[in-house]
Lab assay of single mutants.
Amino acid sequence: TTYKLILNGKTLKGETTTEAVDAETAERVFKEYAKKNGVDGEWTYDDATKTFTSTE
């Protein structure tokens, strides 16, 4: 399943996707990605669109 991440950081904005077996796995991948890029925001998830959003 393809999951999408929308980053709305103070210094980094953008989108990326990952293939994962479930939302929990995708969330771990995306949170590590955000951390590596210095984004520490509030997380939301929309199951209908398989989209995570992190907003600082």
Rank of each mutant, 00 (worst) to 15 (best):
T2P: 04
F52E: 00
Y3I: 02
D46L: 03
E42S: 11
K36A: 14
F52M: 01
T51M: 04
K35G: 05
K13Q: 12
T53W: 10
G14Q: 14
E24Y: 09
W43I: 06
A34E: 04
D47W: 07
T25D: 08
T17K: 07
K4H: 13
K4D: 02
K50N: 07
K4F: 12
E15M: 12
V21A: 14
L5R: 00
T2Y: 07
D40S: 10
T51N: 01
T25M: 10
E32D: 11
T55A: 07
E19T: 14
L12I: 14
W43Q: 01
T11Y: 15
T25H: 13
E56C: 07
K10Q: 12
K35D: 07
E27F: 15
R28V: 08
G38S: 06
F30L: 07
L12Y: 15
K31T: 04
V39T: 04
E42V: 15
E15Y: 13
K36S: 11
A23C: 14
V21R: 11
D22L: 04
T49H: 06
K50Y: 08
A20Q: 06
A26P: 00
K10L: 15
K36L: 14
K31M: 09
A20L: 02
A26G: 01
E24K: 12
K10Y: 12
V21D: 13
T2F: 09
E56M: 07
T49L: 08
L7K: 00
Y33D: 01
N37L: 14
T17F: 14
T18F: 14
F30Y: 01
N8I: 14
D47C: 07
T2C: 14
L7R: 00
D46K: 02
K10P: 12
E15Q: 10
E19L: 14
V39M: 09
A48N: 11
K36V: 12
E24D: 12
T18L: 14
Y45K: 00
W43L: 08
V39W: 14
D40V: 13
K31N: 04
E27C: 14
E19P: 04
D47T: 08
T16I: 15
R28K: 13
K10M: 13
G14T: 15
T51H: 01
D47E: 14
T11M: 10
Y33R: 01
F30R: 00
T18H: 08
D40A: 10
L5H: 01
E32S: 06
K13M: 09
T16M: 15
T1Q: 11
T16S: 10
W43T: 01
D46H: 06
A26S: 01
D40R: 10
T1P: 06
D22I: 03
D47H: 11
W43S: 01
L12T: 13
D22A: 03
K13V: 12
E56F: 07
K35R: 14
K4N: 05
N8L: 13
W43V: 03
S54M: 15
K13I: 11
G14K: 14
D47N: 09
T17S: 11
A48R: 11
D47I: 08
T11S: 11
I6K: 05
Y45N: 01
A48E: 12
T44R: 08
A20K: 02
G9M: 07
A48K: 11
K31Y: 06
Y45C: 02
T16C: 15
K50S: 05
T16N: 04
D40K: 10
K4E: 03
T25C: 08
T1S: 11
